[in-house]
Write a protein that binds this DNA or RNA. Structure first.
Lengths: 193, 193
DNA sequence: GCACACGGCGAACGATCGTGCTATTTTTGG
DNA sequence: CCAAAAATAGCACGATCGTTCGCCGTGTGC
């Protein structure tokens, strides 16, 4: 890895941290430079604009999320087991709150602000929904779920469980948050069996 | 209503609009002043600090939400009907995306930033959850829901449906968003019957 | 051995931020 | 109607924002 690429990664790692707790919009070149021990201009040179930085942060976080959530699920046996691994991995990353927190806050930050960042974000969400729906579809084909179950609806409902879980855990500090999420998940699975 | 109170309200109305699309943190005294045709200092004098402004915006939006969602529900007959009215009213305000959008984005903006704004936000969420749980509890007492159903879990699950609905509608622009929300709601009700 | 690209720094820019001060205008109560 | 009080404006401040430009050290290919 070239020196430039090495610094770029280091900056992006710091940026995900910052953006995860304050939102994508709270990313500032200055604070990011201080955090990484670089000069503003030196850091800025790696990204041609702030918007480009934000998009790269999004993509970097996306890779992390795929690695930590999607990949474990795809490594698990098809059907219900795979869905369960997806759910548990998702719970796992939401526990630490890195990429997951970034995506969710970005979803509300940019849901009304057109531009390249929003477009990129929407595409990532759609791709992810498709992945989840596809896993569920496979589960139907393998006989784990009802023939007439709706994969997109399942992806939708599962996502809802994760959203409220994240809020319960991080905003409200609810000690029972994970328990509630599991109960909701169990019922969702059962009603699709 | 005194002149001061009148302008204060006008400012807060504009502020809710701004904050609903860009987040609470995107509120700036300058842009708010321009939007309301006032001078920065004139506007600032109404709120002793930006943090105070943010909290007042939160409270103002809270009153709107109570008026548009809680009150209609409490005016409906106890039990399942009341919960349904709550859900439909909630869908209604989320359609326009004012206070609702503000609260949700604020939840993720401040979930990791201690301070008065966060504290106020948490309290509002807890109060709202209690209200929903209480409506459900009444529904149990009236025989609409299962005796062993969990009111807090119901409030939790319902909130999850609304969160993903809001995302589906506003970020993804999903035409079927409302349909999906209703389906999830129906299933939630049925599984608690 | 030398030109050259690359990574990074320092300084500066115009803009905007939140927030004080001091006037000045407008509203209000008696 | 008049004085007290409240509402608003004007201006300035230090800080920080994103961005640009010119410079410098360091290693690399020719």
């Amino acid at each position: 890895m070239s020196k430039g690429e090495e610094t770029r990664r280091a900056v992006l790692e710091a940026a995900v941290d910052v953006a995860a707790s304050g939102g994508l919009a709270s990313l500032t070149i200055g604070s990011l430079a201080e955090r990484t021990g670089m000069s503003k201009s030196g850091l800025f040179a790696h990204f041609k604009s702030k918007e480009a930085l934000q998009i790269q942060v999004l993509e970097f976080a996306g890779e992390t999320f795929v690695e930590d959530v999607i990949r474990p699920a795809l490594s698990a046996p098809r059907g219900e087991k795979r869905i369960t691994v997806l759910f548990e991995s998702w719970l796992g990353v939401s526990r630490e709150g890195g990429a997951e927190c970034l995506f969710t806050s970005a979803a509300w930050e940019y849901d009304d602000q057109p531009g390249a960042v929003r477009d990129r974000l929407v595409r990532m969400y759609l791709d992810f929904n498709d992945s989840v729906a596809q896993m569920f579809r496979t589960g139907i084909a393998e006989g784990f779920f009802a023939e007439d179950a709706d994969p997109e609806q399942f992806a939708h409902d599962l996502h809802g469980i994760m959203l409220i879980h994240f809020q319960a855990r991080h905003l409200l500090g609810d000690a029972k948050a994970e328990d509630r999420a599991r109960r909701a998940f169990t019922r969702l699975i059962e009603s699709n069996r």
